[in-house]
Design a protein around this nucleic acid. Structure first.
Lengths: 114, 114
DNA sequence: GCTAATCATTAGCCATGACTGATGCAGCAC
DNA sequence: GTGCTGCATCAGTCATGGCTAATGATTAGC
């Protein structure tokens, strides 16, 4: 499985997306996350493990606490994956236009949705 | 569940991502997808239903065939979701820089990963 | 040393969902 | 009409994964 695939699997569940949303603004401890996430500490740790394996979050030890933060590198892979479709679909659309109306509308704006 | 959440759940499984990848360049029939995807036609149809409900693909009937294509609107929601983290994390990073090195480095490039 | 707090990991339970096979339905050819 | 093709949907099975409870490891404070 590629990095992007692992990352996409990881964010494919609401609980983990919620964790990412909590961690994005600033790093948080497992305890803080548990308090805010109607779940056991065990469940939170298990989700964090998946996110760690996917490279989406990074950890930092401070005393007995572990502070989690978002790691931008893997998030970049997710962006790249989504952008891949974007480009493919827009390219196909542009092709369709040139096929159906030959010689017209060469100024197709492939960034219209961006 | 929001549109973005539904879309992210839908792409959270390898089989459906593979379908999206096949459909992205140009529309395809269910038969074509089944031939290429070591799966039953039934399984393909079920995945397509999930993608349809998530708004990620659109259908077009042509005779007895159903031609599927990617729908850009929901894909835009996915992009927006990812970009949300991006902005949060970069903002937090910028805040950290100004906190730890006051009066220095005001030219922080928040687009370095983009 | 002991105790408390924080977190990871394990074992086990249960719900969800991914899949197959069967059936039903619509459109086309004859 | 009959038959065939392409697809959706239903019913049922099985594996996956998300969850809790319990336990273990580590660190801090006493």
């Amino acid at each position: 499985m590629t990095d992007a695939a692992r990352a996409l699997d990881a964010i494919g569940t609401p609980a983990r997306r919620r964790i990412l949303e909590l961690v994005a603004p600033h790093e948080r401890s497992v305890r803080e996350l548990t308090d805010e996430l109607d779940m056991t500490q065990s469940a939170v740790s298990q989700h964090l493990k998946v996110l760690r394996d996917a490279g989406l979050v990074a950890v930092r030890a401070e005393g007995t606490r572990r502070l989690y933060r978002v790691d931008l590198d893997q998030l970049a892979q997710v962006r790249a994956w989504v952008d891949g479709f974007w480009d493919d679909v827009l390219a196909a659309f542009a092709q369709h236009v040139t096929d159906t109306s030959p010689g017209a509308d060469t100024g197709t704006n492939t960034e219209e949705h961006r």
